Computed example of a mutant assay.
Amino acid sequence: MAISLQHAGEFTVALANQLLAEALGDAITAVQVTPLGEGVGLMSSIGRAVLTLASGKSTSVVVKVIAQTENVSISKQLNFYANEIDFYRYLSPLCPIRSPKCYFADIDPETQDFLLILEDLGAAAAGDQLKGCDEALMLQGFEKAAQLHGRFWGKTDQYPWLRYQNVPEVNQFRQDVVFRPGVAPTLAAFPEYFTGDLADVVTQIGENFVSIFERAMSGTQTVIHGDYRIDNMLLPEVDGEIEIVAVDWQNTTGGRGPHDIAYFSSQSCGPEMRGATEMAALRRYHEILLDEGVKDYSFDQCLEDFRVNLMITMITPIAIIGTMDSGNERGVELGRVILERGLSSLIAMDCGSLLKELKLG
């Protein structure tokens, strides 16, 4: 029987000893769980468990369980919880992007209730999407993604447990339940951001989301993070340099590589990063893919894939603002910030023109 919890606060001394005492090499005498971060648990509930050990020392771990908001039904429909459990069970040791050490991962296949216990790298290292990133971090984000995608490019069939982004019924769910219903509330909430023809562009993306998504995910598949943004990164300093540690692998699937960098750029990088800075990072991404052995993939194709994927990444601000429970004030502000950034990406990469070229009707 799977071991899962409804609330991080249900992580007791008895359960901690059952799951962690051997790995820690000491008995646990007390557990204190507090919520981890504000506005970071849109799709899951996360807590920091401080463990008092029999030796008198203390340590801490991160405990992750299902969301305690209306978002739980969307998370289960999109297999978010199963995806992350599978990543830590099977893929994390092979992944070139560092992720927290996993102490325990289990899920109930029927209810999708789960329990994930991870290494705690400390609050000081947490990325902040509201602050965004500088040019150096943007470049590292593109480089790390290229290493991940290059490692698994064309090899996803070696992992039979891996789910894929491009699933017809899930695509329809994204369009009809997540994107379309959120467009009008988003336009009403922030009309000042929809300059020029942006309102029409975003509406057309929503109306044709299934077709655009299928195009965005077409071609050779690789393993993608799927929710690759600053809030899902820890940024510890290693040998004097900031190193990206990726967390929240809930949308990890087979998909098209440029999706991750389109998502990262449009969600985590401000309008000042558009133009030459973004294009240089994209060229570096493509160079690393070639260095990793990717064949028959031109930069022009990479650029077009990037532009198409920018369109479908608009689902995130639309969902946060117009469809889902934003969680708290930070969640509301996050929706506003990534909406502004996402729209700036559509403008910079002239996605409105590309939308017409795709001839979606």
Rank of each mutant, 00 (worst) to 15 (best):
V308F: 02
A23C: 02
V202S: 03
S298D: 11
L354P: 06
K76G: 04
D305F: 06
Y164Q: 14
A30T: 00
G335N: 11
L15M: 15
D296I: 11
L339N: 05
F213Q: 12
Q32I: 00
I288D: 07
I85N: 10
Y81T: 03
D120I: 09
D197C: 01
P100W: 01
F190D: 00
A105H: 13
L15G: 10
I321Y: 03
I320Q: 04
L91D: 13
L303V: 03
V294T: 13
S265E: 03
D227T: 07
L360T: 11
P100T: 03
G127I: 10
V238S: 12
A27N: 09
E272D: 14
M324F: 14
L354D: 01
V63Q: 12
G322S: 13
G141Q: 01
V332Q: 13
M314E: 07
R98A: 15
T220E: 08
A82D: 05
A124E: 15
G226I: 08
S99D: 04
L78N: 09
G25A: 10
L334D: 01
Q68C: 01
S266R: 01
L19N: 05
Q204W: 09
E38F: 04
P258M: 07
L118V: 10
E22H: 02
R48N: 02
I205P: 04
R283M: 05
I318M: 06
A125Y: 13
T12G: 07
M138Q: 07
A123Y: 12
E135L: 10
L121F: 14
I338F: 03
I312K: 01
S298W: 12
E84A: 12
I74C: 10
A199M: 12
I338L: 14
Q165M: 13
D106N: 11
A21K: 05
M324E: 09
N83D: 15
A188Q: 15
E143K: 03
K57T: 08
W249L: 11
N166Y: 01
M324P: 03
N328Q: 04
I318F: 02
R89D: 12
